[in-house]
């Protein structure tokens, strides 16, 4: 279980998070939505201690990761797998080395065992046989999926997905959704997914949370979000811009 208590974060005078309170139960699949630039990626980085909050704290299974000692931070991070928005593959390493790095660094697995696990993970993201390629040779969507393979290689307890399906074709995107659901159901992982894609959001979410102006303004199930009356939330899921009326006026 992850608990976020009053997370506040500013960057050079610009306040991005203004007190985010959230509880993420083990085994659930939580989708975080919100406008571009509202701090979703920043919030995910707080969950793994890549950023420390100005105020508030993140507790992972009761352990505080925010502003904690480095050794503690690393110990807690072992529970996480993170897919970055930009995939963030290591340029200087092949696909195989990218996916296998955690195993090489943290386990005593032999080369053969690592190769086997890497192949398994690549197969899960339908990218078998690209072990020897370099990240620069891959398409954007492929990089995303290699990033996902890397995130799941260590069989983490919590997986953070920052826009896992952005930039993928609808069919591949759907297979990623299926993968997220499968990971959650079969391996009992807790998934935290940031996405703009409402179709996948409704498909994978047990619960949705919306961030707006640095705070959680909505938390609930698909049913609840579709029937609630907060204007911003309603407009967000319907994909209407705020000044729609003004714009239509011109045409």
């Amino acid at each position: 279980m992850i608990i976020s208590r009053g997370i506040k974060k500013s960057f050079g005078g610009k306040q991005v998070l203004r007190g985010v309170d959230m509880q993420i139960d083990s085994g659930e699949s939580l989708v975080i939505i919100g406008q571009s630039g509202c701090g979703k990626s920043v919030f995910l980085k707080h969950l793994v201690g890549l950023l420390d909050p100005d105020a508030g704290e993140i507790l992972v299974d009761g352990d505080r990761i925010s502003n904690a000692k480095r050794a503690d931070v690393y110990r807690i991070r072992m529970k996480f797998g993170v897919l970055f928005q930009s995939a963030a593959l290591f340029d200087s390493m092949s696909v195989e080395q990218n996916v296998g790095l955690g195993l090489v660094e943290h386990t005593k697995m032999t080369k053969g065992e690592i190769d086997k696990r890497v192949a398994e993970c690549l197969e899960m993201v339908s990218l078998s046989g690209i072990q020897k390629q370099m990240p620069s040779e891959l398409s954007g969507g492929m990089r995303k999926r290699v990033g996902l393979a890397r995130a799941i290689a260590m069989k983490p307890q919590y997986i953070l997905y920052d826009e896992p399906t952005t930039g993928l074709d609808p069919i591949t995107a759907d297979s990623i959704n299926d993968l997220i659901i499968q990971m959650q159901q079969e391996l009992k992982v807790t998934s935290i997914i940031v996405t703009h894609d409402m179709v996948s959001a409704f498909k994978i979410a047990d619960r949705l949370v919306m961030l707006h102006l640095g705070r959680v303004i909505f938390s609930g199930t698909e049913q609840e979000i579709k029937t609630q009356s907060i204007d911003i939330v309603r407009r967000f899921i319907a994909g209407e811009s705020e000044d729609k009326q003004v714009v239509t006026h011109y045409f």
């Binding site: 793994v48 890549l50 996480f80 963030a88 955690g102």
Partner: peptide, 18 residues
């Protein structure tokens, strides 16, 4: 620097690798 601005350093750190 390239690794930093492309989040590769974050990725490494998130894998509990210093």
């Amino acid at each position: 620097g390239t690794m930093k601005v492309t989040e590769q350093i974050d990725a490494l750190e998130s894998m509990a690798i210093s």
